Simulated assay, not measured.
Amino acid sequence: MGDILTDKIPLPHEAGVYAFWWIADRAELLAADRQIVLKGPGGNDVSVHYEEWWPEELKFPCLYVGKTTNIRKRFSQHIMRNTKPDGRLHMAHSNFFKVLPYNSSCQLRFGIEHIFPKEEGVLKTIKRAVGFSYTTDFPNNAIAERFFMEDRLVGTWRPWFNVDSER
């Protein structure tokens, strides 16, 4: 894959399931601010602490799993490289509260900005430390199979940025 900060990324315009991975030093990730406070049922605060809960067989910790009708477009929505490329989209909250996201499509960038609240060059961190994988191989009953694969991978790989509160 090319430089995510400057190059046109050679990803397909096809439907699929994808994952973002922490490929840098695991200790750096585990030293991050791993708490987030979400709004739960009845508007009550729910504190979540991101644990080292990934399966041992994973070489890299999984950060986010998703499904999409267009891999290239969805990748770009997560990174948002043309929006404040040298800064942050989301201001850090001093008490770990989840701030209002820039949009509902940038879960990866939001998550990285949340766990590294002092990091200004967030895209540089993503370029250095985050990997991406995907599959578009769904020959039969594709919509249902993408749904089930995403659900199964979230349940198995336990990605931090897929955690949301119950409503």
Rank of each mutant, 00 (worst) to 15 (best):
E150M: 14
A142R: 06
Q77I: 04
T135A: 12
I112S: 03
R81Q: 14
T68I: 03
R34Q: 03
R88T: 12
S76G: 13
K124C: 05
K118E: 07
N141T: 08
K127W: 05
L89S: 08
H78N: 08
E119K: 15
F138P: 11
V154P: 13
L29T: 03
G111H: 04
G42S: 02
Q107D: 03
R34E: 03
E145G: 08
L108P: 09
W160P: 01
E119G: 08
T6D: 04
T83A: 14
S105G: 07
A144E: 14
A144Q: 15
I143Y: 06
T136I: 15
I23E: 01
L108T: 04
P41E: 03
I79F: 07
A129R: 13
V65K: 08
I36P: 01
D137A: 15
R72M: 04
C106D: 11
R128L: 11
R34L: 13
R146F: 10
K118I: 00
L89Y: 04
I36M: 09
I115F: 04
L38P: 01
E14S: 02
F132S: 03
F75D: 08
G66A: 03
T136L: 08
Y18R: 03
M1T: 07
V122M: 10
F116T: 05
D164G: 13
D7K: 02
E113M: 08
G87P: 12
A129H: 11
I115N: 07
W54A: 08
V46K: 09
S105L: 06
Y50A: 08
P55F: 03
V163M: 13
S133G: 13
V46W: 01
G131N: 06
V17F: 01
D25R: 05
Q35I: 05
S76A: 10
H13N: 09
F75A: 11
K8W: 00
M149V: 10
F138Q: 12
R146W: 07
E51Q: 14
I9P: 00
R146Q: 15
L63W: 07
L58E: 04
I126P: 08
N95D: 14
G87Q: 10
A27E: 05
E120T: 11
N95C: 07
I79Q: 10
T156A: 15
F132A: 06
K59W: 01
Y102W: 10
E14F: 00
F110W: 10
Q77C: 07
R167S: 15
D151P: 02
V48F: 07
